[in-house]
């Protein structure tokens, strides 16, 4: 009997030390979520790559895309990225007011981005180039719309964190949450690089 007990106790001790080794997996878990999101976008990009040339005798990218507007939109998102970076720098210095101010500016740039995108969608749909017009437009609205939806939810998340930061200040949890949103926000900017290159620039060249 005693022969059996001793190894069991040793096993327990072994597992306990391993368990203690993992201190907090939130950042890694969030990163893995982002990677799964990346796969969703990869599928949507593949879909656009396959269907992007099927206009069904409807309007093509050259008729629909206004590159000046896309350039402005890209600028908005890039500026929101750097202002979020400034918010993170202020957080490192424990300055709550400045962090909140930079987060608010980031939110405004994000809203401008979503606003411009919605205007573009509205124009296209009003011209009869809605998602049901052709396979090209279906895949376009799905890909760009999914990205826009991500940005919209990012803005909601940003507002939530601003309220929480006002109430609670810089706790360890708040720092972790702001770091997660930082990853999310910069990741969306990264996806947008793919969108403006693959959809808009290459669409006009096609």
């Amino acid at each position: 009997m005693s022969n059996h007990i001793t190894p069991a106790v040793n096993d327990q001790a072994f597992y306990l030390t391993e368990e203690h080794h993992v201190e907090n997996g939130t950042m890694l878990g969030f990163w893995i979520y982002l990677m799964s999101d990346c796969l969703i976008f990869a599928c949507l990009f593949a879909m656009f790559g396959v269907l992007g040339g099927n206009y069904a005798a409807g309007p093509g990218p050259k008729d629909l895309f206004d590159l000046d507007l896309v350039a402005v939109n890209t600028t908005m998102l890039l500026l929101s990225s750097i202002t979020y970076g400034f918010a993170m720098l202020e957080m490192a210095r424990n300055r709550k007011g400045a962090t909140l101010a930079w987060l608010a500016i980031t939110g405004c740039f994000g809203l401008a981005f979503v606003g411009i995108e919605l205007t573009e969608f509205h124009h296209m749909i009003a011209e009869g180039a809605g998602p049901q017009r052709s396979a090209f437009l279906s895949s376009f609205f799905t890909l760009v719309g999914t990205h826009g939806l991500h940005v919209s939810f990012g803005i909601l998340w940003l507002i939530t964190l601003m309220v929480q930061l006002t109430q609670r200040g810089f706790t360890v949890e708040m720092r972790r949450r702001l770091n997660c949103l930082s990853l999310f926000w910069h990741f969306l900017d990264l996806i947008w690089i793919g969108v403006f290159t693959f959809v808009y620039l290459m669409g006009v060249l096609r």
């Binding site: 201190e23 907090n24 950042m27 890694l28 970076g85 993170m88 720098l89 490192a92 360890v172 720092r175 972790r176 770091n179």
Partner: peptide
């Protein structure tokens, strides 16, 4: 410690 906070 152990939060994996990046050095910005």
């Amino acid at each position: 410690h152990g939060e994996g906070m990046p050095h910005v």
